[in-house]
C-alpha cells in the first residue's frame, strides 16, 4: 500500500508539473465566457443548454486527459528507461501498475473537482443574472445538486477509460493504444446494440460474437446520465450503485490483466 501511494503521488506531481491543471483552469474560464455568450442569446431562459454543455465539456476534457496521460503512464517510463532504476527498488511490478493507475485517477479527480467548481460558479452566475435561483420555466434549480450525480458518473467513465488506456499501453505502442482506447470509448457508448444483434442479423456465429463482445467491451452508456439530470428526471440510487459496481469489477479485471502482462515483460 505504501509503495502504491508513493508511486501515485509521483504521478500526480508529474501531471501538475506538466501544467495540465493550468490548462484546465483556462478551460473553466473559457466555459464561463461561452456560457455568458449563450445566456445572452437565449436571454437567460434556457439554462439546460448550459448545464448540458458544461457536463459534455467535462466529459470530453476528462476523456482526453485520461487517454493521453493514461497511455503515457507506463510506456513513457519504459521508453525513457527510467523504469530500470525504479524496478530495482524493493517494489513489485504489480504495485507499479496499480500505483500509476491510482495516481492518474487522483489527478483526474482533482481536475474534475476544479471543473465542477467552475461549472457551479457559471450556473450561479446565470441564476444571478436571471435574478432568481429557480424560474418557473426551468425544470430544476440552476445549481441543482443532482448534477453531481452526472459528474460522479463521468468520473466513473474516466476511471474505466484510464484502465483501458493503461491496459493497452502495457503491450502496444502509444499511438495504437490511443486509437484502441478511443475506439473502446465510442463502442462503449453503443454497446447495448450488440446484445440484441439477432434483431439485425440472422446468423448464429455473428450473434454469438456480438454477445461475446458485449460482455468484453466496457458498457459505458448506462454511466451516462447527463440527459436525465439536466431534464430533472429521477436517477435512482440503486441504479447508480449497480453501475458503480459494474465499473469497479471491469476496472479490477483490466488492472489484473495489465499487471499480469506487465509482470511477464522484458525491458529491452
Amino acid at each position: 500500500m505504501r509503495v502504491i501511494r508513493h508511486i501515485a503521488v509521483n504521478v500526480f506531481k508529474e501531471s501538475v508539473r506538466d501544467k495540465v491543471l493550468y490548462n484546465l483552469v483556462l478551460f473553466a474560464i473559457l466555459l464561463m465566457a461561452a456560457s455568458y455568450l449563450l445566456s445572452q442569446l437565449t436571454a437567460g431562459q434556457d439554462i439546460k443548454i448550459i448545464k448540458d454543455l458544461g457536463l459534455a465539456a467535462m466529459q470530453l476534457f476528462g476523456l482526453f486527459m485520461a487517454v493521453f496521460i493514461g497511455i503515457g503512464l507506463v510506456s513513457k517510463e519504459v521508453e525513457r528507461r527510467s523504469i530500470y532504476s525504479l524496478l530495482s527498488k524493493p517494489i513489485r511490478r504489480q504495485e507499479f501498475v496499480i500505483g500509476k493507475y491510482v495516481g492518474l485517477v487522483l489527478t483526474l479527480a482533482v481536475n474534475l473537482a476544479i471543473m465542477t467548481v467552475a461549472y457551479y460558479a457559471v450556473l450561479g452566475y446565470m441564476a444571478w443574472m436571471a435574478g432568481s435561483w429557480f424560474k418557473p420555466g426551468w425544470e430544476a434549480p440552476a445549481m441543482d445538486p443532482a448534477l453531481l450525480k452526472a459528474v460522479a458518473m463521468i468520473m466513473l467513465q474516466l476511471m474505466v477509460i484510464t484502465a483501458v488506456a493503461l491496459f493497452f499501453s502495457t503491450f502496444s505502442s502509444p499511438m495504437l493504444s490511443a486509437g484502441l482506447t478511443f475506439g473502446f470509448y465510442i463502442v462503449g457508448h453503443f454497446n447495448a446494440d450488440l446484445k440484441h444483434f439477432e434483431a439485425i442479423i440472422d446468423s448464429r456465429p455473428v450473434v454469438y460474437l456480438a454477445r461475446a463482445l458485449y460482455y468484453l467491451l466496457p458498457n459505458l452508456a448506462p454511466l451516462d446520465v447527463k440527459a436525465q439530470v439536466v431534464h430533472a428526471l429521477p436517477v435512482p440510487a440503486a441504479y447508480l450503485l449497480l453501475n458503480t459496481a459494474y465499473a469497479f469489477v471491469y476496472i479490477a479485471a483490466l488492472l489484473t490483466a495489465s499487471s499480469f502482462i506487465f509482470l511477464r515483460r522484458d525491458f529491452k
Binding site: 509521483n10 506531481k13 508529474e14 508539473r17 525513457r80 528507461r81 527510467s82 530500470y84 532504476s85 530495482s88
Partner: peptide, 13 residues
C-alpha cells in the same frame, strides 16, 4: 541491493 543502469535516465520534472 543497488543498481546503476547504463546511461541512466530519470524523470525530467
Amino acid at each position: 541491493i543497488g543498481y546503476l543502469p547504463e546511461s541512466p535516465y530519470f524523470y525530467d520534472y
